[in-house]
Amino acid sequence: MTFLTLDSLTVRRGACPVVDQASLTIAEGECVGLIGPNGAGKTSLLRGALGLLPIEGQSSLADLPPRHRAAQAAWLPQKREIAWPMSVERVVALGRLPYLARGATLSAQDQSAVDAALHRMGLDGFRQRIATQLSGGEQARVLIARTLAQDTPLLLADEPIAGLDPAAQIATLDVFRSLAGEGRAVLTSLHDLSLAARYCTRLIVMHQGRVVADGPRDDILTKEMLADVFDLRAEVLDTAEGPIVQPLGVLHASTAPQTGAHG
């Protein structure tokens, strides 16, 4: 079953397309890594897919009415915001808002989704803590738990592991992979190429607004791609745990002004 279909999705900032004719599908059971250098258009692609930006082309999610969309896809923005001093449990319970009637309190089903999300992110002991007083990494876990509480088929996450310690990074990606194993799907942008390679079933590479590669990791993570897209001299080491990408240096092939994005 397909959870997301993008067809020639274009997002413009002014006249310049920051996402240029992107087409892709995300199906049940997939954990897809969206990789690319800074400014490649990863965030704009995710936001455009959700209909949070004006788009040209088609996105199956952006076409849905807002409440309906909220039941289909959860969104974890890059900017981690918790504006008010609420308890962790209350913040996570915000994920149930799309299912609540106006003024209604949490049902038993809502509460069990919240409990499951807290447990999954290892936050059982944090329930009553004030979320704004936690460390940045703990807040990030709370916000991930919030998206899990939304209990949607699809999760879109924008650099969910940035700023987390290594154990929390791996734990988070473990959760994403197990979500995929349960028949859901995850599309997440990542900067750590080795973790992306190990945890994602499929990688999508963006460069200058375009989707330049989409496929299984072994086809994607090549020295040539790393040089062309990331401007990196790197080794891809095959280990028993999967490939490890070791960046060794910066190539300067792309320091000249680029004109390709407008093509």
Partner: peptide, 18 residues
Amino acid sequence: GHGLDALTLGEDAAEALG
């Protein structure tokens, strides 16, 4: 109330919450 609760997580997250 509903919308303001959602806005606790920022404008983007609130909009994605419907």
